[in-house]
Each structure stands twice: as structure tokens, then as C-alpha cells.
């Protein structure tokens, strides 16, 4: 089941080897650690790039995060429940 969320979240990310990767995110006062990035892709909203990440935690759900370069804001787009 897919749950559309569309809420801003706080993300700790690493910038290494020319790559951006979310490491930890906090949503509704809950912290999701040990993120493993399954895939990433990007698109543009006007001149601004949006980078998407599908990430998994040790739990079974898959979370779709988006980093918007217009305001440097992270958003939890949707959750793919197991």
C-alpha cells in the first residue's frame, strides 16, 4: 500500500564523493536511522532540481524522500508500506 505524505522532514545527509545521501530523518517526532538508499533520481521544477531518494530502514517500509534545491528543504513524499 502506498501512503501519500507530502510533509517536510528534518534530514541529516552526507555529501561524499560528489554524492548527496540522506542518513537519518525525523518525521512526526520519530527518528529513522540506518537508512539504506535503494535508488535515487531527479527532476526539475522550473530551474530548480529536485532529488528523490527511495530509502529503507531496518523496518520493512520504503520511504520516498525529496530534496528541493529551491529552498534546501527535505520532504517525505510517500511511504510504500509492506
Amino acid at each position: 500500500m502506498i501512503e501519500e505524505i507530502g510533509e517536510n522532514v528534518t534530514v541529516l545527509a552526507s555529501f561524499a564523493d560528489g554524492r548527496l545521501q540522506p542518513v537519518v530523518f525525523k518525521w512526526r517526532n520519530r527518528i529513522y536511522r540506518q537508512l539504506s538508499v535503494a535508488s535515487s533520481w531527479s527532476d526539475y521544477e522550473g530551474q530548480y532540481k529536485r532529488v528523490y531518494f527511495s530509502v529503507m530502514t531496518d523496518r520493512s517500509n520504503l520511504y520516498e524522500l525529496c530534496f528541493h534545491t529551491r529552498n534546501f528543504q527535505w520532504c517525505l513524499v510517500r511511504i510504500h508500506h509492506d
Binding site: A38, S39, W41, S54, M56, S60, L62, H80, D82
Partner: peptide, 14 residues
């Protein structure tokens, strides 16, 4: 091959 479905499988390993 099955492009849209394959991309979905790629971005969601489950």
C-alpha cells in the same frame, strides 16, 4: 524490458 515496471522494481527492491 517492461520499462516502467522495471524502474519500479529497481527503486523498490522489495
Amino acid at each position: 524490458d517492461a520499462f516502467f515496471a522495471s524502474v519500479e522494481q529497481l527503486t523498490d527492491p522489495r
